[in-house]
Write a protein that binds this DNA or RNA. Sequence first.
DNA 1: ATGGATGCAAACTGTTTGCACTACT
DNA 2: AGTAGTGCAAACAGTTTGCATCCAT
Lengths: 147, 147
Amino acid sequence: MSNNKVMDQIKKILDNHLELKKQRKTPERYAILEEIYNFNHHFDADELYNKMKKSKFSVSRATIYNTLDLLVELDLVTKHIFKNNTFKYEKSFGYRQHDHLILDSDEILEFCDPRIQLIKNSIEKIYDVEIESHSLYFFGKKKKKLK
Amino acid sequence: MSNNKVMDQIKKILDNHLELKKQRKTPERYAILEEIYNFNHHFDADELYNKMKKSKFSVSRATIYNTLDLLVELDLVTKHIFKNNTFKYEKSFGYRQHDHLILDSDEILEFCDPRIQLIKNSIEKIYDVEIESHSLYFFGKKKKKLK
DNA sequence: ATGGATGCAAACTGTTTGCACTACT
DNA sequence: AGTAGTGCAAACAGTTTGCATCCAT
């Protein structure tokens, strides 16, 4: 499989961090990271919890949340909040930055537009601030096709 | 006061809507709308609830949420969700569309950049969709001033 | 062996819901 | 009079927390 290489890289990142910060290399952390990178796109804590429960490696909710926080901090995972108030997550290593288009409240597409960087640069200059991240969502619906 | 005029206009909008949809013109609805338009910027349901409680017109949480939904539907109020998972609201009539810059996790500034419309237009064409709304937030921090 | 991490369940927070009562039309 | 809207409190959902136990170091 070609993405074993990605898997190796992200595990290495986690590994390095844990070593550096003298945190424990628990099997749970690696198992969770692996499951997340097997997801294709957005999931929430509960989905991950259930996926883990079905897998050979059952893990508690507390650990799910703890590990998600850790991985977000490491930039291996991105945390979103769309319109409702539950957090959504997605793997982020090796995926270039993108924004989201949400159609009919449930379908999520991704896009990338360089002009967002230009806006960011302007804002930084105008307000004399340093921007660390942004979130841009478009909400819309598919056009009805005329018969 | 110069914004009595604004107050009159928005009450008229609510009025028309209630009449049209044959909904009741309860004093609670007008009182809540008025309090909201006395706020200067972002608040959450609880802040509004407390503000109402202190005013002459105490109102229940259920009514707060019901009325907020109604006003959002009428575009008199905008509903946001920033990084944590509680909804924030702001009055929106007469205020041209703007986006938000959140500094050091607590200060909220507003800005307006026409390029966001250009991005929107592109996305609509590329994906053949109709975009109804967007949300754009920049998260950053103030630059340290050198002494 | 030590204490950081986990599992479990209870607590918490913001929001929603059910139902009896109120008051707008 | 009829019923939409309100108030209250209980229910709910997602997340966080406290504490006993476990296991990586």
